[in-house]
Amino acid sequence: MIKVENLTKRFGEITAADGVSFEVNSGEILGLLGPNGAGKTTTINMLVGVQQPDSGKIELDGVGNPLDKDVRKLIGNAPQSLAIYEDLTAEENLRFFGRLYGITGKNLNVRVKWALSFSGLTERKNDKAKTYSGGMKRRLNLACALIHDPPFLLLDEPTVGVDPQSRNHIFESIEKLHSDGRTIIYTTHYMEEAQRLCDRVAIIDKGKILALDTVNGLLDSYGGLSVINVKLESLPEKPLPVDGNVDGNNLRIETEKPLEELAKLSGSGLKFLELSVDRADLETVFLNLTGRRLRDR
């Protein structure tokens, strides 16, 4: 488990993290969703021990603070900026970082082989990283974070600048890591990623966590009403079974429970020409919480 209590970090006048608190359960993926400059990377940097918080407390699974280098061994970090040596090959990068974690001999060979296979880079293992596509570099960046087999994984926007194929590969890799039981913190400003991958999502903006829950929980609490739009073949003579606005043959229903409303409509014998349900998403949640869109800036 990762436990963060009231983390604060200031850079001059700017407060990058303002009393950030959360807990990540073992084997869980927690998403930090927020726009650029929200404080996600600063939070990650404090979590991995490369930046010291002005105040607050971090504890990993009861073993201590990541400022201690023995605790840091338990963390794998894939930073937002590509932390690989582009003039080294994939294998050389992995061997180098593996050796820094004290992995040697046969064990190192096994780990390097696993990481290459995991990132889909076995075929290109002897090519310099600078010859890779953006997606391949991202996968190598992730593989380097995993070379020492850490139970805690911090992934800071791991799909930035990645083609759809590599993005999918990264998603599948993260899902596999999740199923292996690793505890993961995943920062992103893409709500689709958070919705697909994360068990729980923390909405962060201006250094503060505004809300933290499961995706459905956030939608229920902050998403607002779902909208059902129906185009009817003809208007019924008797009253409609649901509350809604009628405009010609068009019916618009705003509801907290769209499934129940749809069941009522279908049981009424009405004939539909068109039907759509617009459900709230995390973008709406963010908009409702901050008054801004995720990618306004």
Binding site: N45, V48, P79
Partner: peptide
């Protein structure tokens, strides 16, 4: 970013 990874290493 490699400096960050180095600092994260033990």
């Amino acid at each position: 970013g490699t400096y960050l990874r180095l600092k994260l290493a033990p």
